Every structure is written in structure tokens, then in C-alpha cells.
Simulated scan of single mutants.
Amino acid sequence: MNANNIADPVQLALSFLERVWGPSHDLNAIDELMTEDYTITTGGATITGRNEFKEWVRTFQQKLADAITVSHETIRSEAGDRVISRWICSGKNNGIFGLPADGRNVAFTGIAIWSVRDNRLAACWVERSALELYQKIKHDHS
């Protein structure tokens, strides 16, 4: 795929983070920014399909109230068909990772690697510091 046929992957990724993971939590932006067969692989699981992804985000945002993700660095591949973002997600613990909800502020870091197809985000692979946050919350509740 030639880079001229690809939307700016950095702008796609930043728009996704701002609109879906920003204060507005605009889940309808997923329909605009992601392909219909969008997949995300995170935490050892793969979510397939835009609607399934939207439901996954909705559920996650319920467990991490007021969730906000801020990109600290984005890198575009030379071909323009990939973008990598290093980010921090924060919010209030409302039962994240199945732990007791206590309403306190929590945060974790992550890296997302997206592929771009047809001027939309098509797939994502996410690595996040979920284990470290889980251990911290669990330890604090012990």
C-alpha cells in the first residue's frame, strides 16, 4: 500500500486517543476511525470487530471511571501504514482488573502499535503495565 493512499496514521491515532479516551469518551468515533473488522490484541486476548471493540471500551471505561489516555510520543512508520504510541492511561478505580472499587486515582503506561488500512485504524497490538497496577492495587487492599 502506498503512503499517498493512507490517512496520516499519527493523526488517526491521536484522534482516537483524544475522542475515545479523552474526556468526551465518544465511542461513536470508533465507527469513523476504525475499519469494520478492527482487531485489538491486549492482555493476551483479541477483540475482533468494531462493535465488539466498542463494547470492550465501554466496559473498560466503566471499570476505570473518568479514564483518560494521553499520548507522550507517536512514531509513524516510513511506509505510513503503522503508527506507534507511548501513552499513560489514568482514571479512578471502579473495579479495574476485578479488584474492589475504591474510587482512588490510578494510572498505567502502555504502548500501542496500530496498522492502517483504507484510511482507518485496522488493527492494534497493546502492551500495558496492567500487572504492575494490579499488584499495587491488590497490595494496597491487603
Rank of each mutant, 00 (worst) to 15 (best):
M1Y: 07
N2Y: 13
N2S: 14
N4V: 06
N5K: 08
A7Q: 09
V10R: 13
L12G: 06
A13T: 11
S15L: 04
F16H: 14
F16A: 09
F16I: 01
D26C: 09
D26S: 14
N28E: 11
I30G: 01
E32C: 01
M34T: 07
M34R: 02
M34G: 02
T35L: 08
T39K: 10
I40L: 11
I40C: 10
T41N: 04
T42E: 14
G43Y: 02
G44R: 07
A45G: 00
T46R: 09
I47S: 10
T48G: 00
G49E: 04
G49P: 01
R50L: 04
R50I: 00
R50P: 03
K54S: 04
K54A: 02
V57I: 06
V57P: 02
V57N: 00
T59V: 06
T59F: 01
T59C: 03
F60N: 06
Q62A: 03
K63F: 04
L64H: 07
D66R: 06
A67Y: 00
I68M: 08
T69A: 14
S71C: 13
H72C: 01
H72K: 07
E73M: 10
E73C: 05
T74Q: 05
I75K: 02
E78H: 06
E78G: 00
E78S: 09
G80R: 05
G80D: 03
G80L: 04
R82H: 15
V83W: 07
S85F: 00
R86I: 14
W87M: 10
W87V: 07
I88H: 02
I88N: 08
S90A: 12
G91C: 06
G91W: 06
G91A: 08
K92W: 03
K92A: 09
K92V: 02
N93G: 09
N94L: 11
N94G: 14
G95P: 05
G95C: 08
G95M: 09
I96F: 09
F97H: 01
F97D: 06
G98C: 05
L99T: 11
L99Y: 12
D102E: 06
D102M: 00
G103C: 10
R104S: 11
R104F: 12
N105W: 01
N105Q: 07
A107F: 12
F108R: 14
F108I: 13
I111N: 07
I111L: 15
I113N: 09
W114D: 08
W114M: 10
S115Y: 10
V116E: 12
D118P: 06
N119W: 01
R120W: 05
A122T: 08
A122M: 11
C124N: 15
C124E: 14
W125Q: 11
V126P: 06
V126L: 13
S129V: 02
A130V: 05
E132D: 13
Y134I: 05
K136H: 13
K136R: 15
I137T: 04
K138V: 13
D140K: 13
D140R: 10
D140E: 15
D140W: 08
D140M: 13
S142A: 15
S142M: 13
